Structure formats: structure tokens, C-alpha cells
Amino acid sequence: MTPTQPNLEDIFMKTIGVIGLGNMGRGMALSLQRGGYEVVGTDASSETRASLAAEGVTVVDTVAEVMAKVELVVLSLPTAAIVSEVVAGKGGIIENAKKGVIVVDTSTSHPDTTRALAKQLHAVGMRMMDAPVSGGPKGAITGTMAMVIGASDEDFAEAEPVLKAMSAKRVHIGGVGAGHVAKIANNLFTASHLLVAGEVTRMAAAAGVPVERLLQGINAGSGRSFVTEHSFPTWVMNGKFDSGFTMKLMRKDVRLSQELTSAVGLDLPLTKRVAELWAESSQTIGDAEDFNRIVELGTRESKAAA
């Protein structure tokens, strides 16, 4: 499905910045360009910058050069610490503040980090919203991602035409930080479902039941999930394991869930065990491997033993 693109006559934000041009940022930049926006991007990697420039996007070397040109800037960065550095660090967005610009963080980050940065941006006349995404690199390049959004009603309404060029679904969850709470919850579900699906399919195979038919039965019943309906046929059963999302990134997101749980003063034993299993998986499944490999937990020798 291709999302509806904005009427070019109605576009008042004409130039959009994208900071972070990796798997997701590259796709978002190209979707924005296809949607009729001028895009100015940058990345810490000169090779990544050169690669996107070859695809026709205007690429510059610094955040300052991005900020000089744009009405809205999209962040697609791997960690909350890097988001903080890009926004509030030396040579970052705040040092190059431009009144009225909205900063849209599509990363999976900590809601407290987002809220603190939003206050700093507000002090220099800028605004922030969190719009973490689902859909992977394919969703980014096709503009079919889903976004869960934390923003004021006014900022969401102003930014939505830009977000629409990058996504097929947008759910406004609440104020700043709410989008990151929702994304952490979403990824915790996925992390949990993959662990359970890996164990359930091994149980069925050991009992002599073909896994393909087991999944057909589950997907016809109440146990189905995105993992059983999509992840297994797309990346697991065919052995491809090429979703574009790594073990390292999912481990980071699961850690974020535990930080959030602690911050709000809860003791959640099941999700705590999920987090422990994801952390322990580093002994057998490397950071660079596809995150769906977690279904193989317990089937490999430890790297130390090997």
C-alpha cells in the first residue's frame, strides 16, 4: 500500500532535514523526497553520506548545515545517548537553533530523555515530538511504516503532512514522550513473542508435529501474533534472517523497557525474565545477527565454549 501523498500546493514545510541516514533514515529521506519535499540529510559516516547523495538527496557534512535550511528535522539514530548528543551536544541542533523548527525523533529512545530534550529545545524556540517507527527498512523506503507519536495536539497537526509522506499509519498516543513509551511496549511484546514462539515450535517439532502446519493452526486461533503470522514465514522458516534489525538493537530496546519499569516503580517478573534471556543470548548470538535469531536461543553452544 502506498500512503496518500500531500498536495504540493498545500505544503508549507518545504524543506525537511534527516539526521541519521542508515537503514531507516535513508528510506525516510527517499520517501520524503518522493512525497514532494526537499530533503537535506547528514550522517556521521562519510560513506553513508556519499551513498545517499548518489541517490539524488542533498547531503551535507554537519548538523549546522542541515539546520540552516529546514523547517522540520527528522532524527533516525540508534540510541538515546546519540540523540542527546545530536540535539544538545557540541555543534548540535540547540547550538544551531532555528525558531519554530520541529524536531521529530523517530528513534527508539527513553521517554525521560525526550522530555528533557524537549524542554531544552523549547527554551530556544524550538519544539520536539517523538514518533518512533515500526516496519523496518522496507517500510521506510516504501513509506508504509507505522508511527506512535508523542506530541502536543498543535505540533502533531502541523507535522502530520510530513509524517504522512513517510508512513501509512500514525497513532497520536499523547504528549511528548508517550510515543517512546508505546514503542518500548511494542518491542517488548515482540521480544517476548519471539522467545515463546521459538520454544513452542521446538516443542511441537519434538512431538512430531510439522512446524509449518502448527503455525497454520495457531494463526487460525487465538494464539496468533505478528511473530507467527509474519516473522516466521518471512525471516525464520526460510532461514533468511534478514529483517534489517539486529540483536544489538533489540537488546537495547529490551533494556529500555527495564529502565522504564524501574523508573515508574514497578516489579514485573515476566518481562524481567524476558530481559534476562535477551541479555544472556549474547553468549550464543552475536550483536550483528538478525534479531529473529532469538528463536534459536538454547540451541547453540556458547561462544566461549566454541
Rank of each mutant, 00 (worst) to 15 (best):
S51I: 01
G150L: 06
F226E: 04
S76R: 02
F291K: 04
G36K: 07
I102M: 13
M147K: 03
E47Q: 11
M24D: 02
D287E: 14
A168L: 15
A306Y: 06
P132E: 02
T201V: 12
L297W: 15
E65V: 04
I294Q: 08
M145F: 04
I11E: 02
D153R: 12
E158C: 04
V274A: 05
A97N: 06
E47M: 07
G198D: 09
T299F: 00
F291M: 14
A205D: 14
R170P: 01
M250T: 04
A118P: 04
P233C: 09
L249D: 05
V124R: 01
D105F: 03
V101E: 00
M128R: 05
R293H: 11
V196G: 10
A168R: 14
P78G: 13
D61C: 05
T299S: 15
D267E: 13
K90Y: 04
L163K: 11
M166A: 07
P161T: 07
G143M: 02
A146R: 03
A54C: 08
W235D: 05
L266Y: 06
A118L: 06
D253H: 10
G36S: 11
N7C: 12
A44M: 14
T201H: 06
A54F: 06
A275G: 14
E154P: 02
W278H: 10
E71R: 01
D105E: 08
G298C: 06
P132N: 05
A207D: 12
I294T: 07
V196T: 09
T108I: 02
A68R: 13
A279K: 13
I16C: 05
I294R: 08
E38K: 12
R293V: 03
H193K: 08
I82N: 07
M147E: 14
E259P: 00
V133C: 03
V63K: 00
